[in-house]
């Protein structure tokens, strides 16, 4: 037996295994570094004023981002109002009636749409909404975000509806319930918690979006007078303060980053835990 050859092969095997472990560590390290840094820098800058006050000129104390927090909530709320019904109905179509060429085309388009850069959706909404309206608005920002939510919500809805056992549909139909009521009241209800999880993940994604908001909802130093007005958001505010030469504004940016990361990660983690519980329960 070729013992030297065997040793060499064992060594190569070990080396590759080591490299894979190292690669995994290399990916985990930046995450820990980024999160750690945000907690330290952001935590130091966070105060009650951050949540309660409006932005102030550099140098004045007690500035906050209350308007940006409300603005982000408004934008995400509008995105859900536009994107969720559309995505859920599209998902219903794909799952219940989508076994044809149209279904294939829609599925493909929704997958492709998931890859469209977010800044392109901003340009699109600018041309279609901001130009005719004549001003930036929360509606425009919400639409741009809704476009980014749409593929996720559609595909999640489809997958989860397909998991609903056919016996449920048959039972309802056998009782004389029309197909549309069966789908809405039986199938959709069964899948609702899972779809909610998909929506939460989509919300987590768009909450952190900046690029599509830059020229749709723009920014606002005070409160917006309605959803047809320019609206501040945490992400755009971070972008502007990150480029600021003033240290107190940079500190505000870190505080906003901390708030944003906490919200996004909590949404992500809770959605995933929810999924795991449900999967474990089904087994």
């Amino acid at each position: 037996m070729d013992l030297a050859g065997y040793r060499r092969r064992r060594l190569v095997d070990l080396a590759v295994r080591g490299a894979c472990v190292a690669a995994t560590l290399v990916a985990v390290v930046p995450l820990v570094l980024i999160l750690g840094y945000i907690v330290v820098k952001g935590g130091a800058a966070l105060s009650p004023a951050f949540f309660l006050e409006l932005p102030k000129p550099a140098g004045e104390t007690g500035a906050g981002m209350a308007n940006a927090i409300v603005g982000t909530l408004t934008l995400v709320g509008l995105a859900c109002a536009f994107g969720v019904p559309l995505g859920v109905f599209a998902g219903i179509y794909l799952a219940e009636f989508g076994d044809n060429w149209l279904g294939t085309v829609i599925r493909f388009c929704s997958d492709v749409m998931a890859g469209v850069p977010s800044i392109v959706s901003g340009l699109f909404v600018y041309a279609l909404v901001v130009v005719p309206m004549g001003r930036n608005s929360a509606i425009a920002g919400g639409l741009a975000l809704a476009m980014l939510m749409l593929p996720t919500v559609t595909r999640t809805t489809e997958e989860l509806l397909k998991l609903v056992p056919n016996a449920l549909r048959e039972a309802a139909l056998a009782l004389g319930v029309p197909e549309w009521r069966t789908t809405l009241w039986v199938v959709l209800r069964t899948a609702a918690p899972g779809i909610a999880t998909g929506v939460v993940l989509a919300v987590a994604r768009v909450t952190g979006e900046t690029a599509p908001l830059l020229f749709t909802s723009l920014n606002n130093n005070g409160w917006a007078d309605g959803i047809d007005q320019p609206t501040a958001s945490l992400t755009v505010q971070i972008y502007q303060y990150a480029g600021s030469p003033f240290e107190d504004q940079q500190a505000q940016a870190w505080a906003a980053a901390l708030v944003l990361v906490v919200v996004v990660l909590v949404l992500n983690i809770s959605a995933r835990i929810l999924v795991r519980h449900r999967v474990a329960g089904a087994r």
């Binding site: 909450t207 979006e209 900046t210 990361v261 996004v264 992500n268």
Partner: peptide
Amino acid sequence: AVPSVIYGLW
């Protein structure tokens, strides 16, 4: 899940 603008900041 970490937002892009935060990668920029960091």
